[in-house]
């Protein structure tokens, strides 16, 4: 039986030589967590099913630093490695793949030019192209936007870009469906409202997207304990759960989370 995946996410500040992993709260307030390749190796050894690196810097030297981070990681980590942040063209994809990455995540550049998704899928296959969507909950309903029932009332979701600093005016749920048509292999769905809060995943959002696409959805944003992962797997069709803080600050090991899920009947790779 196909296992649900547990994916640690490493937000990387690449302004220092080896890079450093940081974590923000609701896309702000940054806290230091460690050296990227060292953390990735630890997570691999604990049983991570995949590793995601997101470049959150905007410096010009970062491209070389990211390649060094990937190279150092790929020598020790034998699960899929996904890399995102600043991927704007197929040439950017080639560069990170040549360093040892297996997938890229695209966000801002794909919102601005959706054909990028098809171009990556054409060259490297759909499995290599993850579309990351940062969704902001808006109180609604609103005409022309997909409406989702939530405990707080009807809501709609707007896709954000530029690392959460700007809003695209695009319906996040409709965008997921369009990304699938263009050739995306997976959707990495982050709730901006929950990110870094430890309040749990946005269940109505994750459910709304996973019902509407037939590609895997990775739930992200808000994970504070293993029960939140149990909740998103038991209440939605999410194929994977992504988390950062609960792993970085050693509150929970990935192995502990997996044991917790197994005891509650969720199939995970042990």
């Amino acid at each position: 039986m196909l296992a649900r995946r547990i994916i640690p996410c490493l937000d990387c500040d690449l302004a220092v030589p080896q890079g450093r992993v940081v974590k923000g709260i609701e896309f702000k307030q940054i806290r230091y967590a460690g050296v990227p390749w060292e953390l990735a190796t630890r997570y691999y050894e604990e049983g991570a099913d995949e590793i995601v690196f997101l470049d959150i810097t905007a410096s010009s030297e970062r491209r070389e630093t990211m390649k060094n981070v990937i190279r150092a990681t790929a020598k020790n980590v034998f699960v899929p490695l996904a890399v995102g942040g600043g991927i704007r063209a197929v040439e950017d994809v080639r560069a990170v793949f040549q360093a040892g990455a297996d997938k890229v995540t695209v966000n801002t550049a794909a919102l601005k030019r959706p054909d990028l998704i098809s171009e990556i899928a054409e060259e490297y296959g759909s499995q290599a192209c993850v579309v990351a969507i940062d969704a902001k909950r808006r109180d609604g309903p609103k005409e022309g936007w997909i409406s989702v029932p939530t405990p707080e009332g009807e809501s709609w979701f707007e896709a954000s870009f530029y690392g959460g600093r700007e809003f695209s005016g695009v319906d996040a749920i409709a965008w997921a469906m369009k990304a699938e048509r263009l050739g995306a292999g997976e959707i990495l769905l982050t709730s901006m409202d929950r990110d870094g809060t430890y309040d749990g995943f946005d269940i109505p959002l994750t459910d709304a997207v996973s019902r509407r696409v037939r590609i895997p959805v990775i739930a992200s944003g808000g994970c504070g304990n293993p029960d939140h992962i149990f909740e998103v797997f038991s209440k939605t069709g999410a194929s994977a759960a992504l988390a950062a803080s609960i792993f970085h600050y050693e509150e929970w090991g990935i192995d502990e989370v997996k044991r917790y899920l197994t005891e509650r009947g969720i199939t995970v790779r042990i």
Partner: peptide
């Protein structure tokens, strides 16, 4: 089933 199969299986 969802196509592609993507992930860990026994």
């Amino acid at each position: 089933v969802l196509v592609p199969q993507m992930g860990w299986n026994t």
